[in-house]
Amino acid sequence: MSSGIGVRPRTAAAPTRPVKKRVVQRTTGQRVKSTIGYVILCLIALAFISPLIYMVATSLKPAAETFTTPPTLWGSAIVWQNYVDAFTYLPFARFLVNGLFVAIAGTAINMAVAVLSGYAFSRLRWRGRNTVFVLFLATLMIPQDVLVIPMYVMMQGFGWVDTFQALIIPWAFTALGAFLLRQFFLTVPQELDDAARVDGAGTVRTFFLVMLPLARPTLAVLAVFSFITYWNSFLWPLIVVNDVNAHGTIPLGLQQFFGQQGSQWNLVMAASVISMVPTVILLILLQRHLVKGIVTSGLGGR
């Protein structure tokens, strides 16, 4: 973990750092330059985020004002009703619940199998371990689009077409989690196992009492990645869901706004804003975990 300095606390920036380390003193000119740089950065960030601002603004406009020249940010009135309409125009609450259910169930399975296999690949000795692990690696190269057609045939065979199982199960075993967890467990000192063993704990107890609690931050990272991929998935639900109003998830619901009745942009935008909320909340809550997880799981700083 010598490379783990990546997540030094924010306060490690200039102010609290001992002056002697800062060999190059900042001149006034540099300060002006860095201020200008900061302003430019803010402008870039603003430009970058403007489509999302536009999304939110449009979601609050009256229907007739979604396209105007010159473009306006705000309409003549703030129409919160659009959000209500988005929920009533389509069974959006249903899509939300479906999406949450599928994403949470899939993520839970993924985490459970990945933490077990990650542990097996890193700290247990068994025949063929590395061979199986290399096979796991190899599956990451397979684009999911290649699997979609046989997967559909398989779902037919199982009688799973147009069911929640079909949305959840096939993608709950991706190998990514095993890697994240394996990388993490490799960083845990061997002494911990030994100590547990001295205390008389077997493999199972060591795993549940010692290792699992330690793995929580990495599991959080895996949870976020897994949740996001489930939540945003489009091609597979498009193929396997027949009754959108019963089994549709958020992306399908959004697409459904472009139905026969014409695009209702203000409602579409309201629905898009709603669809963003869960993942953005996750992101804000877990952003430090995320960066840390990327470092500890061996992505950055090697």
Partner: peptide, 22 residues
């Protein structure tokens, strides 16, 4: 030990069924 198979089993079977087979 056999624990390795037990721990890696669920993930391996799932991956085999839903990635290798397809």
């Amino acid at each position: 030990s056999w624990w390795g198979f037990a721990f890696a089993g669920p993930h391996t079977i799932g991956l085999a069924l839903f990635t290798v087979v397809p």
